[in-house]
């Protein structure tokens, strides 16, 4: 009996880990691509929130979950294009622009939420949400079927995005140019690569992925929206990129691991164990710092990350 319970708990933790990992993975893949082009986008948290809100409102108004995903993703692209105008065109300090976008993303969402839904009531509005998609056949596999093949379709997208992104970065001319721009924009420029265009596209992709992640939070996982819905996930995505040392495989490990910690924490929270769950929650961030220190000699961080490129100025 006890064994059965433990197994059931372990299973539900793993299922939860993959679910929780989904938005982290999506956002981290996007941020990784953005950073590989040399732009440090700290505005993920605001992007997540804004996209979550837009998809939520879309579903509320149109009753179309498909449009919800579409507009949520577009909202993410929109935020990242603002970032692009600020940092690529006007060379505003990337850190500052990212922080400003966080404030704007959260503030806008909160404001519009009240403007759209305010009827004086205090109850949180809710909309329909996507159901889990069980993959026929595969979902019947014991344990693995539940963990990997009874998830939201966006979760499958996130997992499929890993090899696709890898191929795009490593097996296409565009990917080659993107990686070069992040490591040595002057060299790429002299070779005729359009730096600004690459960085705009990289930011747009990052925004698209963060937009999907935000969509996941509102119209996949919950059907709710509230201003703190991102709950630091934008920052965790950033941490995962560093933890993963800008490598997709390790980013996947990082996302699932961070998702596991949270799922585990949620489980023990309900059971009242002695393990200090808050310290468990701090672990990802401590590990990220440790990873930075350990990896410093063989870091894959883009060499020109965070430094605006001006032709002729090094």
């Amino acid at each position: 009996m006890g064994d059965y319970l433990t197994t059931a708990v372990a299973l539900s933790v793993m299922v939860g880990a993959v679910r929780i990992a989904t938005p982290l993975l999506l956002a981290a893949i996007g941020e990784m691509v953005t950073e590989r082009s040399g732009i440090l986008n700290l505005g993920i948290e605001g992007t997540l929130t804004f996209a979550a809100f837009i998809s939520f409102v879309t579903v509320d108004r149109t009753d179309s979950l498909v449009l919800g995903v579409l507009f949520g993703a577009l909202a993410g692209v929109l935020v990242s294009l603002v970032m692009a105008v600020l940092t690529v065109t006007f060379k505003v300090e990337q850190v500052v622009a990212g922080l400003a976008l966080n404030l704007l993303g959260v503030g806008f969402s909160f404001y519009l939420l009240r403007a759209v839904f305010d009827d004086g009531g205090t109850d949180v509005p809710s909309v329909q949400s996507w159901n889990v998609v069980e993959i026929p056949g595969l979902s019947a596999i014991p344990w693995f079927g539940d963990v990997l093949f009874s998830q939201h379709w966006l979760t499958y997208v996130a997992f499929v995005a890993i090899p696709l992104t890898w191929l795009a970065l490593n097996r296409t001319g565009f990917g080659l140019e993107l990686r070069s721009v992040g490591d040595n924009p002057a060299a790429a420029d002299l070779r005729g690569v359009n730096i600004n265009r690459i960085q705009y596209l990289a930011l747009a992709f990052g925004g698209l992925m963060a937009g999907l992640a935000g969509t996941f939070l509102s119209i996949f996982a919950t059907g709710l929206f509230f201003p703190t819905i991102a709950a630091g996930r934008g920052w965790i995505a950033l941490a995962i990129v560093i933890f993963g040392n800008w490598r997709l495989g390790r980013i996947l490990v990082g996302a699932v691991f961070f998702g596991y910690l949270e799922a585990y924490q949620l489980t023990i929270q309900g059971q009242g164990t002695d393990v200090p769950q808050q310290l468990l929650l701090a672990l990802p961030f401590v590990l990220t710092i440790v990873a930075l220190v350990i990896n410093r000699s063989r870091s894959n961080a883009p060499i020109h990350l965070g430094v605006p490129y001006l032709r002729g100025v090094r």
Partner: peptide, 21 residues
């Protein structure tokens, strides 16, 4: 909505930065 002031702060920052450039 009170959240307007967050939008105001964020916009002010972005626009001041742009103007400063």
């Amino acid at each position: 909505p009170a959240a307007l002031v967050d939008v105001l702060k964020g916009l002010a920052l972005v626009l001041v930065l742009l103007a400063a450039v």
